[in-house]
Design a protein around this nucleic acid. Structure first.
Lengths: 147, 147
DNA sequence: GTTAATCCCGACTAAAAGAGTCGGATTTAA
DNA sequence: TTAAATCCGACTCTTTTAGTCGGGATTAAC
């Protein structure tokens, strides 16, 4: 529970890497995959989604690649999560469309859960990716060699 | 992703129900199960865990049941989650014991992720169950009949 | 002391979500 | 034309989540 999605992780890895580049410089998925040891196809798909979400842009063809186009200090983790994994919702009963929870009429915690959901979203919205990627905690037990 | 565990949900349902009772009054799992339509066995197990965690206490035998023993305004959601689902950790690479992430040496986002994890924990720690269970949001689209 | 209601506990099965792979298509610099 | 890259859908494998089952232990009521 509460585990961060692998996709979000790949997104962060990619964003952190691309962010350090010169303006206009492109990064291929291959570059990211070999450098950080992440699976090529999976990472590739995440980049595509980030591109369609407008956070990065792609250039096709040989010598193509990706590049960050938005100011990551103004992109929240919430936005990344919505782009990469879809709706950020803590419980099924909050889902408008396919309302799958069958406790609806009897449940006594819809309000608390929906409240929790709102606060969690606020938390993620307040967290800017740029700032997050800069964090350098002393607790990281293993070196971040390529940072 | 980010979905709240069913177990946590049952815990909240049970706690909210028991909290409204007279001091000393016991609640059986059957009562909760029939009232809110939650599965008996699953809910039962959650209550046992909550009891072993010291949030509620159990009385065995006929006319037995559970009862809240701690001030829920001083019990954080973090505590409940740790009791009910175990370690609150956002990524495998943060897990000391079974360190399953194989990107460790190359990963460039350990610090950000561990930072995120800490903030999320702080968020959950700051959220008191008592206060949460009182929330009555206007957005709850379906009535909470038995509240 | 028997019964019925309750908590207690481990093992099991089924369903859903997560993670990754594969095949092939499209685009474009060289 | 070729090679390097993005693009995309379908598929499998694994892990997690959710729930069930069978039986055991405790205790109030009769």
């Amino acid at each position: 529970m509460n585990k961060i999605n692998r996709k979000v992780e790949y997104a962060l890895i990619g964003l952190k890497h691309m962010r350090a580049k010169q303006p206009g410089e492109l990064t291929s998925v291959k570059e990211i995959a070999t450098l950080y040891g992440v699976p090529f196809e999976a990472t590739s798909k995440v980049m595509q989604v980030l591109a369609s979400g407008g956070v990065i842009r792609s250039e096709q063809g040989a010598h193509g690649g990706y590049q960050v186009v938005r100011d990551l200090n103004r992109v929240s983790l919430f936005e990344i999560m919505e782009i990469v994994v879809g709706r950020v919702e803590i419980a099924k009963c909050l889902h408008e469309v396919e309302n799958t929870c069958d406790l609806k009429t009897t449940c006594n915690v819809i309000s608390p859960i929906s409240s929790l959901n709102r606060r969690l979203i606020d938390f993620y919205k307040s967290l800017m990716v740029g700032e997050l990627l800069e964090s350098r905690t002393s607790v990281a037990r293993t070196a971040e060699a390529h940072a």
